[in-house]
Write a protein that binds this DNA or RNA. Structure first.
Length: 272
DNA sequence: CTCAGATCCTGTGCGC
DNA sequence: TGCGCACAGGATCTGA
């Protein structure tokens, strides 16, 4: 489900209702996630106040009076507020119960996500410490990207999806940005000209910012915390459009596999 | 070091 | 209608 815009949309949806609240209970129905949930997470969170809600890469970070709660939604997760009487359904793995009785409920069929309580500074944690810059900050710019790309033979698409290079660029937005920049996703990262890297950098930023504005991309099952779908799927120009004509030149869009992920591209608009 | 591929898990949608 | 298969928005590990 989620890429960075979906996480950001989720964060904006849940933050106002979490802020300043006290946690009364953390109910874990399924602890086997990408990383097992702390066995004593209920004890660790109980009675603590939520003092901030932030995002780093695709992690939501709930700041408590002591420690932090990391939430990652993996490929199929979502969190929503439900009232106390709402019965838990299939794959409703965790409830964060607040003292006002509202429940932040986490559902994740594939269980690639995680919930983790950590005590020390998030940026030092092994899950976050190696991460590259946020795409919407000035730290992520064309000079940086060009430098990092030098001598890389890796396909440019895998390169921009590498969290050590830049975080938050998933399969959808990688495909969209490369199309808009006119770059073939298979081209070796080190072979891309500075001009194209400048264009790519700008399109990554623009695409993500637009998608956040639209409330994320709803393909099948993404709904923001308020239950509203995202509207960015209407804007997708290349992702999932293989075998259809390109919107710009009507050439039939091709697809290939890069890093195990399906990758659509227009052979005419993205020649190299 | 770099990179392709396998892996964790369940649901969906397609062709037969 | 039912079955089997391919594939899905992420991230990490292994091994060539």
């Amino acid at each position: 489900m989620p890429e960075l815009p979906e996480i950001e949309t989720t964060k904006r949806g849940v933050a106002p209702r979490l802020l300043n609240q006290f946690i009364s209970k953390t109910l874990v129905r399924q602890e086997k996630l990408r990383v097992p949930v702390n066995h004593d997470i209920d004890h660790l969170c109980k009675g603590k106040q939520i003092i901030d809600v932030t995002r780093r890469a695709k992690y939501l970070i709930i700041h408590l009076t002591e420690g932090y709660l990391f939430i990652h939604l993996g490929m199929s997760g979502h969190i929503r507020f439900v009232s106390p009487e709402t019965p838990a359904g299939k794959h409703d793995h965790i409830d964060l119960v607040l003292e006002n009785n509202m429940i932040l409920r986490y559902n994740d069929p594939r269980r690639f996500g995680l919930w983790l309580y950590i005590k020390d500074a998030p940026s030092e944690h092994p899950l976050l410490s190696h991460l590259g810059p946020e795409p919407l900050t000035d730290e992520f710019n064309s000079d940086y990207l060009f430098k990092r790309a030098q001598n890389k033979t890796q396909p440019i698409k895998s390169f921009i999806m590498d969290n050590k290079i830049v975080v938050g660029v998933g399969n959808i937005y990688a495909a969209e940005s490369l199309f808009l920049a006119g770059i073939n996703p298979l081209s070796p990262a080190g072979s891309i000209t500075l001009e194209k890297i400048i264009s790519l950098t700008n399109h990554i930023k623009d695409t993500l910012a637009l998608a956040i504005k639209a409330g994320g991309t709803t393909l099948r099952d993404f709904y923001a915390a308020d239950g509203k779908p995202g509207y960015f799927s209407n804007e997708l120009k290349i992702y999932g459009r293989q075998n259809n004509p390109c919107y710009l030149c009507e050439t039939i869009i091709l697809s290939t596999t890069i890093g195990g992920r399906n990758s659509a591209f227009c052979p005419n608009c993205q020649p190299n």
